[in-house]
Computed example of a mutant assay.
Amino acid sequence: MTSSASVPNQGILGLLPEGLSDRLPPQAEASAHLARNVLDTVAAHGYARVMPPVAEFEETLTQRLKSARAQDLLRVVDPVSQRTLAMRPDMTAQVGRIAATRLAAAARPLRLSYGGPVLRLRANQLRPERERLQVGAELIGTDSVAAAVEIVNVAIEALQAAGVAGITIDFTLPDLIDTLAAGPMPLKDAEREQVRAELDAKDAGALVALGASAAAYLPLIEAAGPFHAAMEKLEGIDAATGQGAIASRIAALRAIAKPIGWDITLTLDPTERHGFEYQSWFGFSIFADGFVGEIGRGGGYAILRADGSEEPAVGFSLYPDPLIDAGFGAVPVKRLFLPLGHDAALAKVKRAEGWRTVAALSDTDDGAALGCGHWLDGSDIRPY
């Protein structure tokens, strides 16, 4: 008999690192089902799935993670190569690597999808989990308006297929400040970052304090909110400059918004940069009623080719863990208890009909306790 002194502390055995957790039944199955719904919807639009590894050499990963720093990655030393590995904090960069190397010769535009866990070194207050499920799609080879229209609408359709309603798409223009600063509203290089920071904070007083050049950007704070009203304000700002520097961006956003259904709420925050550091001319965040914070984001960006040049792309990523926690992805399950001596052929038929069978291994097994709502009585199915 094992002495109590030799039994490991049960509390320690149950501990997990901060920000990591188990998914138990039925949430684990709901997670798989929701991800499957999203990926099936994306696949119906021609996106082929790829499955990159959970870790890569640090230098390979960091050179493609434009919005992440090496010190933000969870790293380990590979005992085989003795090189530093980094756990992926995002799958988009990995898909870009695949497109630029293994699929460099594939016809463009190249449509790829993916789904799997990502791991971050640190969490935040809104999302304390460090391991998150990421599901998404990338359209590589173009960042045209047509490509943007497709990617935004596929993202919406994928969420609707997962049962999500009350969707809001919040658009942004990540390169807006650079475009204006290089043209009708000039700023010195050092001023640009200051102006970006105060616009992100919506701090009008701080902008004025920075001087006349920065104060010229004040109207952009007001050009945020419900899409159509905000777009009119943005058009007014562009018209006031007399140069039409952002006319093409405005026309592109209107083209992207036009085919989106009336049941989707559209908003605009043209100067939002947080999380869009590597996006190019447009970006978008996805929100849903009843959830704090975004559940997805996307936009245009560039991937690094093997020769050092860049290739345009658009894509989106969904982070559905909050949806799963709220019950999305759950499906009714019919569980049938099979007593000892049951008809195996009949049980096979019942499984084909959609039942999930749980076979007794002893005469003490209790079907109801094992989660079954019915049991097989000869050839009849009876409820508990």
Rank of each mutant, 00 (worst) to 15 (best):
F57Q: 09
T142D: 13
L361N: 12
P8G: 08
A359S: 14
S6H: 14
D170T: 14
V95K: 02
R254W: 00
A359K: 02
A165V: 15
G236L: 03
A99P: 14
F276A: 00
A105I: 00
L336V: 06
R122Q: 15
Q125F: 04
I286R: 05
Q160A: 11
L110V: 06
D238R: 10
Q243T: 13
L180Y: 12
S144D: 14
A190V: 15
F282W: 13
L253E: 11
G341C: 07
W375Y: 12
A146P: 10
E58C: 04
H342V: 06
G242Q: 09
S67H: 07
V195Y: 06
T168K: 12
P8Y: 09
D307K: 05
A215W: 13
S3V: 12
L61P: 06
R249D: 10
L187R: 07
A239I: 02
Q134E: 14
A214K: 01
V292P: 05
A326M: 11
E310A: 11
A181D: 08
N124P: 07
P219W: 09
L16I: 13
G242A: 04
I286Y: 08
L376K: 01
A201Y: 13
S362F: 11
A48T: 15
A230W: 04
R254Y: 00
D263L: 00
V54H: 01
D78I: 02
A360L: 01
D189Y: 01
D325I: 00
V164T: 12
G275V: 08
T271I: 01
A204N: 05
R249Y: 06
D203P: 10
L207C: 08
P52R: 08
A44G: 11
A48I: 12
S280G: 06
A245P: 02
P17Y: 15
A240W: 09
